[in-house]
Amino acid sequence: MPTLHLADITFANRPSQLPLLSRLANILAASPAVTHLLVRGSLAHGTADRLSDVDFVVGVQDAALPAFARALDDLMSVEAGALLPGWRDTIVADLGGVGMVFLVPDEGHLHQIDLYLVPASHVPHLRATVATAVLLDREPALAPAEDTAVAERFAAEFFARPRTCAELLIEHLVLAVLLHKRVKRGQRFVAYSEWHRLHTATKDLIKTALVPTSRFWGWYQLREELALTPISRACLGDLEAAISGPAVPAASDVDAAVERTLALVERSCPEALHGLEDAISAYRTYLELM
């Protein structure tokens, strides 16, 4: 097992998330494909509170990046106890790799774990431009140009791939956790942005379930496409209810949005719930404790 350099970050702020951060770091560092583990965000800057997420940059050998990313759901579920498959993070800035968000229970709380996988060849540039604390620094094998091209192509295809109903459901569940944190912290501007993102995910979920071959972009022609059957009209009513709420949500609004989304999924694409019933029950319990 490699030595992880936790002393500096421990001395800086002794965050309550440190035991979880240490456990996750050991899980990730056990893979020989991983060359670097960097912590960024509030844990790296010494400004973390009890709601702060654990935000890793994971350097991976260029050629191994696609396989490591595909195995990440299983790794985080089996080894770290993640409740749900990872959400393809569309909020994080483009750092040359791919971002995933997992929800991991620890000490009675549900923690947001941000994992950004970056090709090892990109790590020097990233470290020069993004403030991080170093946990693991292995010398990577020299990546030939074709390996770097494989990693870059995978990253581009990763975000271009259309999302399934199950992925959009997970996006709702992750965004609800983020929104609860914004509400508790009084971060109204960020809450406004993520609330709109949740509404957009609701629209995307309905279109993916009911009109997957739609020729219209974004929010255009929704009524014309969705007012044709009882199920689609009910889903359109769910979307009307979502966008008719406040511009900045309260905690109760976020909880109502989660329940509305779960009902919408059960009505329009129940297969998206397959295998997630126990996870969603646990998720509801943790949400009540936030």
Results as ranks from 00 to 15, higher is better:
A25S: 15
G86V: 05
G237V: 03
L222N: 11
A256R: 13
R153S: 14
R260E: 14
P270L: 08
Y220S: 13
Y286N: 05
T47D: 02
L51A: 03
F189M: 15
L75T: 14
A63H: 10
A209V: 10
W87H: 14
R284W: 09
A63P: 00
R223I: 12
A247R: 06
T129S: 12
A209I: 04
G81L: 00
L84A: 01
G99Q: 02
L210C: 10
A93H: 07
A143R: 00
I113A: 01
T129K: 10
R185Y: 05
A133Y: 02
A69T: 02
V78P: 01
D53F: 01
Q221C: 09
V254Q: 10
V34P: 12
F11N: 14
R50M: 12
D114W: 00
L95G: 11
V183I: 09
L239G: 06
A64Y: 01
I9M: 13
R40E: 09
A29Y: 03
D114G: 06
E139P: 07
K184V: 00
P270N: 04
W219P: 04
F56C: 05
E288W: 02
T202F: 12
L173G: 08
V98D: 02
L239H: 12
L24E: 03
P19I: 00
W217R: 12
K207F: 09
R197L: 11
E107I: 10
E288A: 13
T90E: 12
T10H: 12
I113D: 01
A30Y: 02
A128G: 12
P249M: 13
E171V: 10
R267L: 14
A191T: 09
D106L: 07
G81M: 07
P19K: 13
L262T: 14
D253W: 09
H199K: 08
A160H: 07
R260V: 01
G46H: 06
P162R: 08
A257C: 07
H172Q: 15
D73F: 03
E277G: 04
S232C: 08
R182N: 15
F189W: 06
S252C: 09
G275P: 10
F159N: 12
V254R: 02
L239T: 03
A191N: 07
